[in-house]
Design a protein around this nucleic acid. Structure first.
Lengths: 200, 200
DNA sequence: CCTACCGATCGGTAGG
DNA sequence: CCTACCGATCGGTAGG
């Protein structure tokens, strides 16, 4: 009985922490990290600001947890794509699919990771930038190899890389399930546009 | 003599205001509107926080001036492009050039307009959103006409629009005069990539 | 999980 | 343009 109660409490605590994190992601996306107070957040969660400190260490910790959860998802999924035997075109298509998928799964957290990482503590910010850099390097490597290979046009690799990355970032700001376009159509149009251009 | 002194004072005041606005744009870009205090800004400008209120009305006014200055530049230049007799391909190329140019001219202010407009007062925010919407509508119209025309591939217009807009936005985060690419090369690669795609 | 409260910092004003 | 200062709000803690 006592054991059961302890377990329930633990589950409850985990759920409350998850609730805090998901409400925080939504608020940070809407109002920014600096524009969101712990009192704003407490109201959404349904408790007093002081009470949240039983579940989380600090406002900074919330930001860290959101940013690194997303960063790790991108990194691990990109590694899987890298390790396949696909052509570079196919790999790039898979990366486009990955971005669309992660955004549709949790657009608020992706938004926070993309926009509010700069409010991380100096130490965590450096860690985050390093992870992001390694992601960009792997991505750039696929583009570069595809250019050497003749699969892609030869141009400045950074321009190609960041054009693709940014094209995959606006989705998070724009996509809502209510749009009259399915995730699949979105993905297809993006692939067409980026790989073959707008000109007919 | 008295007249001359008054004029000099006025010029001085305008310059100080310009200085405040340009330093503010740099700080807002770096640390965000909420992350920048009037005391941070005062230090950069070289006076006490209280003294800045002789030149500006409020922190909010600084944000407004920056955002609407940029918005108006985009709007007026887009109108010029619309009123030419170019093909839709040429118009789109001109828009790409416009974005590159404005970013290179004043990347800090463009960055603030793009990222911190959400901290405008409710009234100004609505105004800003309306201007932006009208910009997007004109832009979308060019894309749509080009599709009907057969110049462009047929696809979801919003996807094409926002992919282009976002591709033109990362430049502000990335471009520094120190990059080993000229603005002209940047512009050319962007045009190639967006209009003809990465595939060779 | 709450009440009560802390020190710090914020944007901004008064008065000179 | 500065000193001195205001009320409000912030993230967070103590104690229960």
């Amino acid at each position: 009985m006592i054991q059961e109660l302890t377990i329930n409490k633990k589950i409850n605590k985990i759920n409350k922490k998850e609730l805090i994190l998901s409400e925080a992601a939504k608020l940070f996306k809407e109002k920014g990290f600096g524009g969101t107070s712990m009192r704003d957040l407490a109201e959404k969660v349904g408790m007093e600001a002081a009470s949240m400190y039983n579940h989380i260490k600090s406002k900074d910790e919330i930001l860290e947890l959101i940013c690194f959860k997303i960063a790790n998802q991108y990194i691990s999924q990109l590694q899987e794509i890298e390790n396949t035997n696909q052509t570079f075109q196919e790999k790039l298509n898979a990366i486009i699919g990955l971005h669309v998928q992660l955004i549709i799964e949790d657009s608020a957290s992706v938004s926070v990771a993309n926009n509010d990482w700069k409010y991380l503590s100096e130490e965590k910010k450096n860690q985050y930038k390093q992870i992001r850099k390694s992601y960009e390097k792997s991505f750039a490597n696929i583009i570069e190899k595809g250019m050497e290979n003749g699969e892609f046009k030869t141009m400045n690799v950074s321009v190609a890389l960041f054009t693709m990355l940014s094209s995959l970032r606006w989705i998070e700001l724009w996509y809502k399930p209510s749009r009259e376009i399915t995730p699949q159509e979105l993905e297809n149009d993006l692939k067409t546009l980026l790989m073959n251009g707008l000109n007919s």
